[in-house]
Design a protein around this nucleic acid. Structure first.
Lengths: 156, 156
DNA sequence: CGGGGATTGTTTACCTAGTAAACGGACTGC
DNA sequence: GCAGTCCGTTTACTAGGTAAACAATCCCCG
């Protein structure tokens, strides 16, 4: 390898736009910031945050899931989940219940209030995303999710 | 609108997979976390962070850019940029230079060392991204960037 | 001129989201 | 019965970012 082809000479006439703009990571981050801001607007000042929203979604989907299992699903540490579950419990959206055969674990169960709150939050987020991405076709949005899931295939 | 079609009944036989998995925001975040971790691995323990990398890229692309203008390009506040520029200056990758007609501003110029460091960082990041996304075709990666840029069209 | 208002970089205080390490209590296998 | 492991939790720490205030400077306009 020569000094010449080490840096971009092999990429041909791709001089337009910076390298930065061609990186997946950079574009992902910028897009993420926009969608996340939209999410927060959808759920309001002191509505659920993204983390609590995801956590509650999993608890509804997998009743009696344990905190460790939930942390694994969310891709975060057990220690980080504590505050999230505290918050959801304080709001009355779920309860830590005893597990018959294991006094270490807490089985998380969503309350009716929590289930209703989740449904309404889901509606709000879906509506906001639809409005935010109204300049994209349905095929484009589907393709985007498909491609993002391809990256997610690299998850732990 | 009845209680029945308010929540998902109109979405038809889409019962497979949770609502969460159908949201752009959630998939974006999970994908971003993976790519960002890969980025950090590419640039090593105390190499450039994502923020410094992006900042240095813009400084090389737009020599003598002002800190305020750079903050706008990065989509962050001026106050947050100070520490980033401090870091890049401490590493000897750029200098704050005087602007002839305005004693408030600092024109940022990358040093030769900074330009070389950026090129080598770019190479490392590109190689890592290529390896991370080797399970996707070139068309898929291009399509992904195109779609992410469609979201970024919503940027301030 | 001469201000009043805007802009620049900076500091300070704060917030969110996450990790890492240590811990007591509880469980399991041998 | 006991060594090792697992669960939830606390604490300390990091990264990345905002918001408000500030002095210095600049610009416009009357």
């Amino acid at each position: 390898m020569t000094a010449d082809d080490r840096h971009g000479a092999e990429t041909g006439p791709e001089s337009a736009g910076s390298v930065l703009e061609t990186l997946i990571g950079y574009n992902l981050k910028r897009a993420y910031v926009i969608v996340q801001a939209d999410f927060r607007e959808a759920l309001g000042q002191d509505g659920l945050g993204p983390r609590a929203f995801s956590a509650l979604s999993f608890v509804v989907q997998f009743p009696e899931i344990t905190q460790s299992a939930l942390a694994r699903k969310l891709g975060i540490e057990r220690s980080g989940l504590v505050a999230i579950v505290d918050d959801l419990e304080r709001r009355g959206f779920l309860r830590r219940t005893a597990v018959p055969g294991d006094r270490r674990s807490h089985a998380l169960v969503a309350t009716h209030v929590g289930q209703a709150a989740l449904r309404s939050a889901q509606d709000a987020v879906r509506a906001h995303e639809a409005a935010l991405l109204a300049h994209m076709t349905e095929q484009e949005r589907e393709m985007l999710i498909t491609l993002l899931r391809k990256i997610r295939a690299r998850e732990g």
